[in-house]
Design a protein around this nucleic acid. Structure first.
Lengths: 224, 224
DNA sequence: TGCCTTGTCTATAGGCTTATAGATGAAATC
DNA sequence: GATTTCATCTATAAGCCTATAGACAAGGCA
């Protein structure tokens, strides 16, 4: 008994009518990089359904439905559902990692770099939200090997934040009594949380980024 | 193909050996409040497996295994897996709600009440972590009706935080340029995030609470 | 003593899922 | 024009999951 939100239309809701021998489902595709393009589409569809229903709640049929192909056809491009999850998770965390590294090791005071990190953290949430949500909430369901692989990226990102915070403490830009580890987790928690409600609130990413930066740097209190 | 972390022992790993007619599985149970006690145990077990594997990744067999009873026996106490999820979610959010309400409408400056809210938010995470995690990450899988019910509690909690923040702004304890809604979401994101890593980090809840309070009230920056 | 209640058990229907095999038409290549 | 490759399809094995039905033992109660 799956908890889809739709009314219970028995079956046959999926299992589309046997199309008459698929008259070239995508007539516009020309080249031979076709296979690659399809793979990308499949991973994007997977990101969408994994984000919406969770890994275990999603079926490969759901993914196929988005692309209007048969469930079995997915296996021409992707070896397994788990493999699709891994690809989605990696693309989810990669978006954060690269820019973050550039910002942290770039110029500027620690305050500015931390502000940059927070703002940059909003970007993947905005334009690869499905991938990010899956990375954040579904990576626990990866098989051990790939979970560890993804975990490394994740810890790397934490280290980037933590390093900037330590740097700021050393240089006297930040309070000296911070716990850099807890502060990192706090900031990431706050920033990652955005992915769970962005779109339901009417605030632009820029607004959110600015608000969060000022909250982290200065807190709620008035200037003293 | 379920992604358990254990090695692939084919089947029969669950499906325990047919015990010889269950010689009173819990000989110590005396009274007739027995049924109630068992219900509680079942919901606790459900919270545990839903937290560990996610609602869709968990099976009713998993729940039964924890209690060493048969899968079908669960249905004597709980009408469906979905109903169990709803019970877990409600207990997950209720822990936050009650104390929060008392603190918000209690005495003290807004700063102090907000600090109290944040510290109090740590308590259910500490002692009903499974319920909280399920509420935070699995309530999306509830059927519409109960999801809305749980959603109300959730929004109520947000309102409590937001009200204190507005109050503090009005009284000049907090900066006047805050967006109360975004600030609320930021604080809840940061506080809820704890549930995803508490236990893996070696910091006490008190430490975490204090660190987060000072971060929210004063930010990372040095006194200016 | 004999009936009723309670909690658990066995068995299973009825569905749904993943992944594999092999067929097929269209396009590309020889 | 014949052959090969590509992308997709149909069909299905094999397995798992929820929920229901009905049996049954032990203890309480009339």
């Amino acid at each position: 008994m799956k908890s889809r939100s739709a009314p219970p239309v028995k079956a046959s809701r999926r299992r589309r009518k046997p199309r008459r021998r698929a008259v070239s489902a995508r007539p516009e595709t020309p080249s031979k990089r076709n296979t690659h393009r399809r793979s990308v589409e499949i991973i994007e569809a997977a990101a969408q359904v994994f984000a919406e229903r969770g890994y275990h709640g999603a079926t490969t049929q759901d993914i196929a439905d988005i692309l209007h192909i048969r469930q079995a056809s997915l296996y021409y491009y992707v070896p397994s559902k788990e493999a699709a999850l891994e690809l989605v998770c990696i693309q989810g965390v990669a978006g954060f990692f690269e820019t973050a590294q550039a910002i942290a090791s770039g110029p500027g005071k620690a305050r500015e770099r931390l502000a940059g990190l927070i703002r940059a953290h909003m970007v993947p949430i905005l334009d690869r939200g499905n991938f990010v949500r899956v990375f954040l909430t579904q990576r626990q369901f990866l098989p051990n090997r790939s979970r560890r692989r993804v975990g490394k990226w994740s810890r790397g990102l934490e280290k980037i934040f933590e390093t900037v915070i330590r740097d700021g403490m050393r240089k006297g830009e930040f309070r000296g009594d911070l716990d850099p580890r807890l502060t990192t987790l706090a900031i990431l928690g706050l920033a990652n949380g955005v992915s769970s409600w962005y779109g339901k609130e009417d605030a632009s990413m820029e607004r959110i980024g600015s608000e969060f930066v000022s909250l982290v740097l200065d807190g709620l209190g008035r200037r003293r």
